[in-house]
């Protein structure tokens, strides 16, 4: 992440919107943060969960088709240093190659398993990619996070950001790929189960209040 840029946007969000969360920062160990996705502001809100040193070692997964061009893509690449991932990979190469290398190199990842911002206030089903990464790195904690209220501030196809309070619900404990590998028959089954468990965890956080 581009620390000064993200910090500036974060302070702007705290001052004019307000971010409510129960903990200050997540633990500094390399992790995967998986959240629901409803708004372009999501990543800047999630950044407030990471300490500055942790932010420097964190990358954000973004869809190649959306973020390769245009102003939004340029802005995200400059401020967040996003990793571009193909949503519909053609050919035989591994679309998650770069995220794997980053996790192996001790980086943290922010990702949105829904793969799209979708309709305001509605959570889509999670895509499998997060399960694949979690089972490939079974000891990396995956934190389920629910971002509340941000769809009111700036939803898809809106261009005016309107101040509303934003809430962050963080799971009491992270999910680990190893717990699913131990129970499942093969890796593919484990990653599927992991994705389902993560989706349930995020949904539960959203319905708690």
């Amino acid at each position: 992440m581009n620390l000064p840029a993200v910090r500036t946007i974060e302070l702007f969000l705290i001052f004019f919107f307000g971010i409510r969360k129960r903990i200050r920062h997540l633990p500094d160990d390399p992790c995967i943060v998986a959240a629901n996705h409803n708004s372009s502001l999501d990543t800047y809100v999630l950044a407030s969960l990471l300490s500055p040193s942790h932010r420097a070692r964190t990358r954000v997964l973004a869809a190649k088709d959306t973020f390769k061009q245009g102003f939004a893509g340029w802005f995200a690449r400059k401020t967040l240093n996003v990793v571009l991932v193909e949503r519909k990979p053609a050919g035989h190469h591994d679309p998650l190659l770069e995220p794997r290398q980053l996790l192996a190199g001790g980086f943290s990842l922010i990702l949105y398993p829904e793969g799209t911002r979708g309709e305001p206030g509605r959570m889509e089903h999670f895509k499998r990619g997060v399960g694949v990464l979690a089972t490939a790195f079974p000891d990396t904690p995956v934190w389920p996070v629910f971002i509340r209220g941000v769809e009111r501030c700036l939803a898809r196809s809106e261009y005016l950001a309107v101040p509303f309070e934003i809430g962050l619900e963080i799971g009491a404990a992270p999910l680990y790929g190893r717990d699913f590998l131990a129970n499942a028959t093969d890796v593919r089954e484990a990653s599927k189960q992991f994705t389902e468990a993560l989706e349930t965890a995020v949904r539960t956080l959203g319905h708690d209040h």
């Binding site: 769809e151 509303f164 309070e165």
Partner: peptide, 16 residues
């Protein structure tokens, strides 16, 4: 005044 107004609008159910 801004904080109060923001709190007011944030309390009102929107979208769902």
């Amino acid at each position: 005044s801004f904080s109060a107004l923001k709190e007011y609008f944030s309390l009102l159910p929107m979208y769902y």
